[in-house]
Simulated assay, not measured.
Amino acid sequence: MVDERRTQNEVALYCDSCAGQNKNKAMIVMLYYFMQYHASFVERLTINFLIPGHTMMPVDSVHATIEGFIQKRTIYAPSEWQTLIGNARTNPKKYETILLKNNEIKDWNSYATAFLPNKIKIQTSKLRNARFEKGDKFYLKYDYDGPEQAIEMSLILRSRQNQQAIREPKTAYTEKLPISKARYEDLKKMCEKGIIPEFYTKEYLDLPCDRNTRDALPETDEDED
Protein backbone atom coordinates (compact mmCIF):
# COMPACT_ATOMS: atom_id res chain seq x y z
CA MET A 1 0.00 0.00 0.00
CA VAL A 2 2.87 2.37 0.78
CA ASP A 3 4.44 1.47 -2.55
CA GLU A 4 1.17 2.24 -4.36
CA ARG A 5 0.87 5.68 -2.72
CA ARG A 6 4.23 6.62 -4.28
CA THR A 7 5.05 9.16 -1.56
CA GLN A 8 7.93 7.42 0.27
CA ASN A 9 10.73 5.55 -1.48
CA GLU A 10 12.34 4.37 1.78
CA VAL A 11 10.41 2.32 4.32
CA ALA A 12 11.54 1.25 7.80
CA LEU A 13 9.66 -1.44 9.71
CA TYR A 14 9.96 -2.00 13.46
CA CYS A 15 8.88 -5.10 15.37
CA ASP A 16 9.63 -7.13 18.48
CA SER A 17 11.91 -10.16 18.59
CA CYS A 18 9.24 -12.86 18.68
CA ALA A 19 10.78 -15.67 16.62
CA GLY A 20 7.45 -17.28 15.76
CA GLN A 21 5.95 -14.10 14.33
CA ASN A 22 8.64 -11.70 13.12
CA LYS A 23 12.23 -12.70 13.66
CA ASN A 24 12.68 -15.61 11.27
CA LYS A 25 13.80 -16.56 7.77
CA ALA A 26 10.23 -16.45 6.43
CA MET A 27 9.98 -12.74 7.20
CA ILE A 28 13.39 -12.03 5.65
CA VAL A 29 12.52 -13.92 2.46
CA MET A 30 9.09 -12.29 2.18
CA LEU A 31 10.60 -8.78 2.31
CA TYR A 32 13.31 -9.71 -0.20
CA TYR A 33 10.65 -11.15 -2.52
CA PHE A 34 8.57 -7.96 -2.29
CA MET A 35 11.53 -5.75 -3.19
CA GLN A 36 12.53 -7.87 -6.18
CA TYR A 37 9.15 -8.60 -7.72
CA HIS A 38 6.54 -6.15 -6.44
CA ALA A 39 8.14 -2.86 -5.37
CA SER A 40 7.79 -0.24 -8.09
CA PHE A 41 8.43 2.97 -6.12
CA VAL A 42 10.06 1.87 -2.86
CA GLU A 43 13.83 1.72 -3.32
CA ARG A 44 14.95 0.65 0.15
CA LEU A 45 13.24 -1.41 2.82
CA THR A 46 14.62 -2.11 6.28
CA ILE A 47 13.29 -4.12 9.20
CA ASN A 48 14.55 -3.39 12.71
CA PHE A 49 14.20 -5.85 15.58
CA LEU A 50 13.93 -4.17 18.96
CA ILE A 51 15.76 -5.54 21.99
CA PRO A 52 13.59 -7.95 24.03
CA GLY A 53 12.17 -6.17 27.05
CA HIS A 54 12.30 -2.81 25.25
CA THR A 55 9.64 -3.26 22.59
CA MET A 56 6.95 -0.72 23.45
CA MET A 57 5.58 0.46 20.09
CA PRO A 58 2.51 2.30 18.73
CA VAL A 59 1.01 -1.06 17.77
CA ASP A 60 0.74 -1.90 21.48
CA SER A 61 -1.59 1.08 21.88
CA VAL A 62 -3.67 -0.25 18.98
CA HIS A 63 -4.01 -3.64 20.66
CA ALA A 64 -4.94 -2.05 23.99
CA THR A 65 -7.58 0.15 22.33
CA ILE A 66 -9.18 -2.84 20.59
CA GLU A 67 -9.13 -4.97 23.75
CA GLY A 68 -10.73 -2.19 25.81
CA PHE A 69 -13.42 -1.68 23.19
CA ILE A 70 -14.47 -5.32 22.78
CA GLN A 71 -14.69 -5.95 26.55
CA LYS A 72 -17.89 -3.89 26.57
CA ARG A 73 -19.43 -5.58 23.55
CA THR A 74 -21.35 -8.80 22.88
CA ILE A 75 -19.85 -10.71 19.96
CA TYR A 76 -21.84 -13.58 18.48
CA ALA A 77 -19.98 -14.50 15.29
CA PRO A 78 -16.50 -14.34 13.70
CA SER A 79 -17.87 -12.21 10.86
CA GLU A 80 -18.42 -9.35 13.33
CA TRP A 81 -14.73 -8.93 14.14
CA GLN A 82 -13.79 -6.80 11.14
CA THR A 83 -16.48 -4.21 11.95
CA LEU A 84 -15.71 -4.24 15.68
CA ILE A 85 -11.98 -3.75 15.20
CA GLY A 86 -12.56 -0.92 12.72
CA ASN A 87 -14.93 0.85 15.13
CA ALA A 88 -12.63 0.48 18.14
CA ARG A 89 -11.22 3.93 17.34
CA THR A 90 -13.02 7.00 16.03
CA ASN A 91 -10.42 9.75 16.45
CA PRO A 92 -8.73 10.72 14.19
CA LYS A 93 -10.47 8.02 12.12
CA LYS A 94 -11.52 4.39 12.24
CA TYR A 95 -8.93 1.65 12.04
CA GLU A 96 -8.48 0.36 8.53
CA THR A 97 -9.05 -3.39 8.37
CA ILE A 98 -8.27 -5.77 5.51
CA LEU A 99 -10.13 -9.07 5.25
CA LEU A 100 -7.91 -11.80 3.80
CA LYS A 101 -9.14 -14.78 1.83
CA ASN A 102 -7.64 -18.24 2.20
CA ASN A 103 -5.94 -18.15 -1.21
CA GLU A 104 -4.21 -14.85 -0.35
CA ILE A 105 -2.10 -16.45 2.40
CA LYS A 106 1.21 -17.78 1.11
CA ASP A 107 3.40 -20.55 2.53
CA TRP A 108 6.42 -18.42 3.34
CA ASN A 109 7.94 -21.05 5.64
CA SER A 110 8.37 -23.59 2.83
CA TYR A 111 9.49 -20.84 0.47
CA ALA A 112 12.14 -19.71 2.96
CA THR A 113 13.43 -23.27 3.36
CA ALA A 114 14.08 -23.48 -0.39
CA PHE A 115 15.25 -19.89 -0.64
CA LEU A 116 17.68 -19.94 2.28
CA PRO A 117 18.97 -23.50 2.85
CA ASN A 118 20.75 -24.34 6.11
CA LYS A 119 24.15 -23.88 4.49
CA ILE A 120 23.40 -20.15 4.43
CA LYS A 121 24.29 -19.21 7.97
CA ILE A 122 21.92 -16.59 9.36
CA GLN A 123 21.80 -16.14 13.13
CA THR A 124 18.21 -15.00 13.35
CA SER A 125 18.21 -14.96 17.16
CA LYS A 126 20.95 -12.30 17.14
CA LEU A 127 19.61 -10.29 14.20
CA ARG A 128 19.04 -6.58 14.77
CA ASN A 129 18.51 -5.19 11.28
CA ALA A 130 17.96 -6.35 7.70
CA ARG A 131 18.13 -4.11 4.61
CA PHE A 132 16.68 -4.84 1.17
CA GLU A 133 17.10 -3.09 -2.17
CA LYS A 134 16.70 -4.07 -5.80
CA GLY A 135 19.37 -6.57 -6.81
CA ASP A 136 20.63 -10.00 -5.85
CA LYS A 137 21.86 -9.04 -2.36
CA PHE A 138 20.40 -8.18 1.00
CA TYR A 139 22.21 -7.09 4.14
CA LEU A 140 22.07 -8.17 7.78
CA LYS A 141 23.35 -6.57 10.97
CA TYR A 142 23.78 -8.31 14.31
CA ASP A 143 24.51 -5.07 16.13
CA TYR A 144 22.83 -1.73 15.51
CA ASP A 145 26.21 -0.03 15.10
CA GLY A 146 28.05 -3.05 13.71
CA PRO A 147 29.06 -4.02 10.17
CA GLU A 148 26.66 -5.45 7.61
CA GLN A 149 26.76 -9.02 6.33
CA ALA A 150 25.86 -9.27 2.64
CA ILE A 151 23.88 -12.32 1.50
CA GLU A 152 24.44 -12.89 -2.22
CA MET A 153 21.42 -14.56 -3.73
CA SER A 154 23.14 -15.11 -7.08
CA LEU A 155 25.21 -17.87 -5.44
CA ILE A 156 22.10 -19.58 -4.06
CA LEU A 157 20.11 -19.30 -7.28
CA ARG A 158 22.85 -20.70 -9.47
CA SER A 159 21.37 -24.20 -9.78
CA ARG A 160 18.27 -24.86 -11.86
CA GLN A 161 16.76 -26.80 -8.95
CA ASN A 162 16.83 -23.74 -6.70
CA GLN A 163 15.48 -21.51 -9.45
CA GLN A 164 12.47 -23.79 -9.87
CA ALA A 165 11.92 -24.13 -6.13
CA ILE A 166 11.71 -20.42 -5.36
CA ARG A 167 10.02 -19.06 -8.46
CA GLU A 168 6.81 -18.31 -6.55
CA PRO A 169 5.56 -19.03 -3.01
CA LYS A 170 2.74 -21.54 -2.92
CA THR A 171 -0.68 -20.86 -1.48
CA ALA A 172 -0.75 -22.02 2.13
CA TYR A 173 -4.38 -23.14 2.23
CA THR A 174 -6.55 -24.46 -0.58
CA GLU A 175 -9.70 -24.52 1.56
CA LYS A 176 -11.00 -23.38 4.93
CA LEU A 177 -9.20 -24.96 7.86
CA PRO A 178 -11.44 -27.37 9.78
CA ILE A 179 -12.14 -27.16 13.51
CA SER A 180 -12.23 -30.25 15.69
CA LYS A 181 -15.33 -32.43 15.67
CA ALA A 182 -15.74 -31.94 19.43
CA ARG A 183 -15.68 -28.14 19.10
CA TYR A 184 -18.17 -28.29 16.23
CA GLU A 185 -20.58 -30.37 18.32
CA ASP A 186 -20.31 -27.85 21.18
CA LEU A 187 -21.12 -24.98 18.82
CA LYS A 188 -24.00 -26.94 17.31
CA LYS A 189 -25.54 -27.45 20.78
CA MET A 190 -25.21 -23.73 21.51
CA CYS A 191 -27.09 -23.02 18.28
CA GLU A 192 -29.81 -25.53 19.10
CA LYS A 193 -30.29 -24.12 22.62
CA GLY A 194 -30.50 -20.54 21.35
CA ILE A 195 -27.34 -19.41 23.15
CA ILE A 196 -26.15 -18.31 19.71
CA PRO A 197 -28.99 -16.32 18.07
CA GLU A 198 -30.62 -17.95 15.05
CA PHE A 199 -29.38 -15.15 12.78
CA TYR A 200 -25.78 -16.38 13.27
CA THR A 201 -26.28 -20.16 13.40
CA LYS A 202 -25.63 -20.82 9.69
CA GLU A 203 -22.18 -19.26 10.02
CA TYR A 204 -21.29 -21.88 12.64
CA LEU A 205 -23.09 -24.86 11.14
CA ASP A 206 -21.28 -24.29 7.82
CA LEU A 207 -17.86 -24.55 9.46
CA PRO A 208 -15.82 -27.53 8.22
CA CYS A 209 -14.82 -30.02 10.90
CA ASP A 210 -12.65 -33.08 11.07
CA ARG A 211 -12.23 -35.84 13.65
CA ASN A 212 -8.46 -35.79 13.13
CA THR A 213 -8.18 -32.04 13.81
CA ARG A 214 -7.02 -31.20 17.31
CA ASP A 215 -7.70 -27.96 19.11
CA ALA A 216 -4.46 -26.06 19.61
CA LEU A 217 -3.41 -23.24 21.88
CA PRO A 218 -2.50 -19.99 20.09
CA GLU A 219 1.15 -19.41 19.32
CA THR A 220 2.98 -17.41 21.95
CA ASP A 221 3.78 -13.81 21.18
CA GLU A 222 6.55 -13.53 23.75
CA ASP A 223 9.98 -12.26 22.80
CA GLU A 224 12.88 -14.65 22.66
CA ASP A 225 15.04 -14.96 25.79
Rank of each mutant, 00 (worst) to 15 (best):
D3Q: 00
L207R: 10
M56C: 11
L140H: 06
P58V: 03
A39R: 00
D107I: 08
Y142F: 14
D221G: 13
E4F: 12
T124H: 06
Y200C: 08
E133L: 10
F115T: 00
V42C: 05
G20I: 10
R128D: 01
R128A: 04
N162Q: 09
W81T: 07
E222Y: 13
D60M: 14
I105L: 14
T220A: 08
Y139C: 06
A26Q: 03
N109H: 11
Y95S: 02
K176H: 10
D3M: 05
N9E: 15
T7P: 00
S61H: 11
A39T: 04
E10A: 08
E185F: 07
Q82S: 14
K170R: 15
K119F: 09
I195P: 00
Q161F: 06
I120D: 03
K121Q: 09
I70P: 00
P197H: 09
R44V: 04
A182S: 14
R211M: 02
K23I: 06
Q163L: 11
L13S: 08
L31Q: 03
E175Y: 06
L155P: 03
K25L: 15
F138D: 01
D143V: 12
T113K: 08
T213N: 08
Q149W: 05
D143F: 12
R73A: 07
T171Y: 03
I47V: 14
L45G: 05
N9I: 02
N103G: 01
Y76R: 00
N118R: 14
K93M: 02
R5D: 11
N103C: 07
F132K: 03
G194Y: 04
I70V: 13
S159H: 09
I66V: 15
L157K: 12
P92S: 02
N22F: 11
M35A: 03
R214K: 15
E10P: 00
N102F: 09
F49Q: 01
P218V: 08
F199Y: 09
N109V: 15
P218H: 03
G194S: 12
Y139I: 08
G86R: 10
D210G: 10
R128M: 12
P197T: 06
S40K: 14
R73Q: 10
I120G: 09
L99A: 10
R160L: 14
Y173V: 00
W81R: 02
I70T: 05
K193C: 02
P178N: 13
C191S: 06
A130Y: 04
I70K: 08
D221S: 02
M190W: 06
R73D: 00
T171E: 09
A182I: 14
P169A: 04
L187R: 02
K126N: 11
T171V: 14
F115R: 01
M1F: 07
A172R: 04
H63V: 04
P197N: 10
K134S: 10
I196G: 06
N48E: 10
A64V: 09
N162M: 04
